[in-house]
Design a protein around this nucleic acid. Structure first.
Length: 819
RNA sequence: GCCGAAGUGGCGGAACAGGCAGACGCGCACGACUCAAAAUCGUGUACCCUCCGGGUAUGUGGGUUCGAUUCCCACCUUCGGCACCA
């Protein structure tokens, strides 16, 4: 029975109340403050699809909690939010519902702003940036021109991946899976030969492999390293019989003497010249079918090798041998030089090809532990290193020197050199779609591709377009937009009608947040100097090889152009996992397993949803949703409410032991919660707070209410709760008459003395098996611990009068008696 | 095939530095309150046995160690990524 009647915990009343108050007071405004250390906490910005998904909550609320924690620890924290608002879904919705992409997008943004506000996150909305605003994409275009002027953007005709459903080209990173499907819609892509704009990401391949200055998860670093795909080897110059240079890349220069033929990609420019009249028909037929095939068919690894002899020959520069030149689709035009030397004895692919077409297999490497290799008897290639044989002057070179010696040989003869190749390609940024930032280039018959002068930016996206997809850029179909005059010669000219990949917009949004209204540059340099780099970046792992490579490239390119500073844009990265449906499947409307955060907020309140999202799984792993589990966090917050607000009948009667134990538990929890916030271990933060509440509740029953210890416990508890559940903590804080706002309070001070244990439970083992537990003073000596353990009746029973061979004492933990 | 992550009660998960396996929560069972139910509060809850007291358990099999969920080796399963990259 309580003395006072308190109102029930009603989140739907207190949450909007405090959200309005915080907004009105500008509680979460972050401004430059040189007196405090800064902390730029960034969470990946959402695409305005129309509804905030539980996945957004899962990504954002723990990030918010941690940003709040950092703020309480004395940092001046910037935690902004915005929208990645250009992109295909807007156009698809436009087509489906006959609504303008712009109207659709901005309507969604408005709705999502409301949903985001319901989280009670500490977003500084003054810094909101929307990538489809002209004042934003003006600077996206400005960056494009900078890259263009520094030779980091170029236009090239090349076979590119085309999604027939989305009617646009895709960057390589946007083509996924074994069947090479479109990242967005799942349609297998096809190849088209198109003039497209690229950024020279490959120029930064080497630097992108260095992660020394950043604290990023291993799995992201490994994934990027694999994506970049560095290979060390040699470039070697072969020649055709006609004297044309035929450059190849190999990772095994030591096998050069075993090259018995060469293979070119069907698209290789020298194919036509090499082909003899007798072979022309067969070669052309092969090329035609290769082009017709999808990449899926062509690049299937289990497919039998196919190819055609060109009739032409090349000269191997190491031994002047004349070897036949073939074409085959297992050689890709997009890697290396599109041509290889084939060494069937030591490369499995070349081996399969040679066997199928009856070409010579000549071993030139003899591993020590293998019987002598004979080309006509081998059943598979031998890729291991070994002693060089049949290799002219290098014959006899041992395996561990073969690579280096051959490179020295090539360089001294000037027929090749050491080189490094990357799997990474240049970033294709052209999109044949409407709803994106127009590429600010004008084509003039006299002057060629001319960048739009900076003072004329932005190149505005017209509203009156036909956005029905035709395979052409919608802007091309606009009656007037594309026609303009050349900024250089004033002659008639046409605008580029492709728009930019939206990953371009999201490569620099963290900079626009700094000063979204700034109009003298993409960002205010004062803000940049104070806030950058981003200290903590949180978001989905799916961006490991896309956004997170692009944004690093972008930063490094800008650094070299004098726009940004430092080696990296984001110092610390942490990824959350994915929340699956209750059926353990990916959430989707068609499966009917979508969890709506709005419904949950209505039923339980934002604080409960936040706490449950932190509690229910390890953040970096995610997992299936469990709708009954949320009852636990809901119950917990209701108990927090009554335990701290409801005055009990029993007061001030607690024994000193009870109070000492309460203090100890409070400070032990403070230690673990602090540590877990630092380590992004949100689930144990919530469980530690639940555990402490159980202790607090017992102390209350034992009469602790009203004591100094009780007041300290309340104060520390609410401060620790504040980042997790910002509304209820503010409300209780307020009702207890403490000064507004709890969110501007500092993080509690840890008292090591209070947290200290005076007694510990000593575990006693005999031969490693638990036989007794004895409570002893924490500062017991090893000798005494040993004595007490040996005196235990239970222990004596299992010792069977034997003498211990060894007694291991782990201070404050255990005694193990080994017989 | 290659690379990465993960396998712990009925379920989500915890275990900081090699030292009590299963914290915290869900679920379930029983009890209190109630005319009753909900809510709330309390107690219990890995499995097996001969239930006093033992034994067995962290995907599987080995190893190191007084002692292994934790370290090492081999393997299995699930998930994610890459895939003829010369």
């Amino acid at each position: 029975m309580s003395k006072n009647i308190i109102p029930v915990y009603n989140p739907s009343e207190i949450e909007p109340k405090w959200q309005k108050r915080w907004e009105k007071d500008g509680l979460y405004h972050s401004d430059i403050d040189e007196t405090k250390p800064k902390h730029y906490a960034l969470t990946m910005l959402p695409y305005p699809s129309g509804d905030l998904h539980i996945g957004h909550w899962y990504a954002m609320t723990p990030s918010d909690a941690r940003a709040r924690f950092m703020r309480m620890r004395g940092y001046n924290v910037l935690f902004p939010m915005g929208f990645d608002a250009f992109g295909l879904p807007a156009e698809n919705a436009a087509i489906k519902h006959n609504i303008h992409p712009k109207v659709w997008t901005y309507r969604n943004i408005e709705r999502m702003r409301q949903q985001l506000r319901s989280m009670g996150a500490m977003f500084d909305w003054r810094r909101e940036a929307i990538s489809s605003d002209p004042e934003y994409y003006r600077w996206t275009q400005w960056f494009f021109i900078k890259l263009f002027k520094h030779d980091l953007a170029y236009r090239k005709k090349s076979p590119v991946d085309w999604c027939p459903t989305c009617n646009t080209t895709l960057a390589r990173e946007q083509v996924w899976g074994e069947d090479r499907h479109c990242e967005r819609c799942g349609t297998p892509v096809i190849k088209r030969d198109l003039e497209q704009w690229f950024f020279r990401t490959t120029r930064y391949a080497e630097e992108l492999l260095c992660y020394e200055t950043i604290d990023w998860p291993e799995r992201v670093r490994v994934s990027q390293t694999n994506w970049i795909g560095r290979s060390e080897g040699a470039t070697v110059f072969f020649h055709t019989e006609h004297g044309d240079e035929l450059e190849i890349f190999t990772t095994r220069p030591d096998t050069l003497w075993g090259a018995t033929f060469m293979v070119l990609a069907p698209e290789h420019p020298l194919v036509s010249k090499l082909t003899t009249p007798e072979q022309r028909k067969a070669v052309e037929a092969y090329i035609e079918q290769a082009v017709r095939q999808t990449d899926v068919q062509r690049e299937a690894t289990d497919k039998e090798k196919t190819g055609v002899f060109t009739g032409g020959y090349a000269i191997n520069p190491v031994n002047d041998e004349r070897i036949p030149v073939w074409i085959a689709d297992y050689v890709l035009m997009t890697y290396g030089t599109g041509a290889i030397m084939a060494v069937p004895a030591h490369d499995q692919r070349d081996f399969e090809f040679a066997r199928k077409f009856g070409l010579e297999v000549r071993p030139v490497i003899q591993p020590v532990d293998m019987p002598e290799l004979r080309g006509d008897e081998m059943t598979k290639a031998v890729p291991e290193y070994g002693m060089m044989i049949n290799s002219g002057s290098l014959t006899g070179t041992p395996g561990n020197q073969a690579f280096e010696k051959t490179i020295e040989f090539l360089e001294s003869k000037k027929i090749g050199h050491r080189s490094v190749n990357y799997r990474l390609r240049d970033w294709l940024i052209s999109r044949q779609r409407y709803w994106g930032a127009p590429i600010p280039i004008v084509y003039c018959q006299q002057c060629g591709a001319v960048p739009v002068p900076e003072e004329q930016l932005p190149v505005l996206l017209p509203d009156d377009v036909e956005w029905r997809p035709t395979g052409e850029s919608p802007l091309k179909l606009h009656p007037t937009w594309r026609f303009t005059t050349c900024p250089q010669c004033n002659g008639p000219a046409e605008r580029e009608t492709d728009t930019m990949d939206t990953f371009m917009c999201s490569s620099w949004y963290h900079l626009r947040y700094l000063s979204p209204k700034y109009d003298r540059g993409p960002f205010d340099p004062r803000e940049y100097d104070y806030w950058m780099p981003v200290d903590t970046y949180t978001g989905g792992i799916e961006h490991a090889n896309m956004h997170l490579i692009y944004t690093r490239f972008f930063h490094k390119a800008c650094r070299d152009m004098g726009i940004t500073k430092g080696p990296e844009p984001m110092l610390q990265l942490r990824n959350q996992g994915i929340v699956l449906g209750e059926d353990s499947e990916k959430m989707s409307k068609s499966r009917g397993n979508v969890v709506s955060p709005d419904d949950l907020v209505q039923a339980y309140g934002a604080d409960t949803v936040r706490a449950y999202l932190m509690f229910f799984a390890r953040w970096e792993l995610g997992g299936p949703w469990n709708s009954s589990g949320i009852e636990g966090t809901s119950r917990w917050l209701r108990r927090v409410w009554t335990i701290f607000l409801e005055e009990p009948e029993v007061q001030g009667k607690a024994t000193s032991d009870v109070l000492r134990n309460l203090r100890r538990k409070v400070h032990q929890t403070l230690r673990s919660v602090t540590r877990d916030f630092e380590k992004f271990e949100f689930n144990t933060i919530v469980s530690a707070l639940m555990e402490l509440l159980n202790e607090v509740s017992k102390a209350k029953q034992a009469g602790a209410w009203g004591t100094t210890e009780w007041n300290e416990a309340t104060d520390i508890y609410l401060r620790m709760l504040a980042p997790v559940a910002p509304h209820i903590s503010e409300e209780i804080w307020h009702q207890l008459g403490k000064p507004y706002s709890i969110h501007t309070q500092s993080w509690p001070e840890f008292d090591a003395e209070a947290a200290r244990e005076e007694e510990v439970v000593l575990v006693v083992q005999v031969n490693g098996k638990l036989r007794d537990r004895i409570t002893v003073p924490a500062n017991i000596s090893e000798e005494d611990a040993k004595k007490i353990a040996l005196a235990s009746e239970n222990v004596r029973r299992f010792m069977e009068d034997k003498q211990p061979r060894q007694v291991i004492v782990v201070p404050k933990k255990l005694v193990n008696i080994v017989l």
